[in-house]
């Protein structure tokens, strides 16, 4: 993703209480960050109890390129990261319990 303009701001917020994830809510367009924050407040938090509100210029976000993105989707399916690996040892351990 190569964002082109710095007039778009992505909006992240925390709703539902302190400690909840800060999540992407959408975007606003404004000429500066203070105005972007106010727009985001108006559009995205009017009906929510919001505890954190971030606006980030879209151009500041680095999301990798096509080749990098393709390498993302290999997180699962690596047996050596699974607790049962290697399965032969797991069977021998038998009744030793988890923490």
């Amino acid at each position: 993703m190569q964002p082109e303009s710095d007039a778009e701001y992505e909006v992240f917020l925390q709703i539902g209480g302190v400690g909840k994830p800060i999540q992407l809510a959408g975007s606003v367009r404004a000429s500066d960050r203070e105005l972007a924050w106010q727009c985001a407040k108006e559009i995205f938090t009017r009906r929510e109890d919001c505890t954190v509100l971030w606006v980030v210029p879209r151009s500041s976000i680095f999301a990798g390129d096509k080749t990098l993105i393709e390498t993302l989707f290999q997180g699962t399916g690596r047996e050596f990261r699974m607790p049962g690996f290697p399965s032969s040892h797991r069977r021998e351990r038998g009744a030793v319990t988890e923490l």
Partner: peptide, 17 residues
């Protein structure tokens, strides 16, 4: 009315992008 204008904003954002 506030909600509806907000809806106008967020759908305009989609087409603006």
């Amino acid at each position: 009315i506030q909600d509806e204008v907000g809806h106008g904003h967020i759908t305009a954002r989609v087409s603006e992008d």
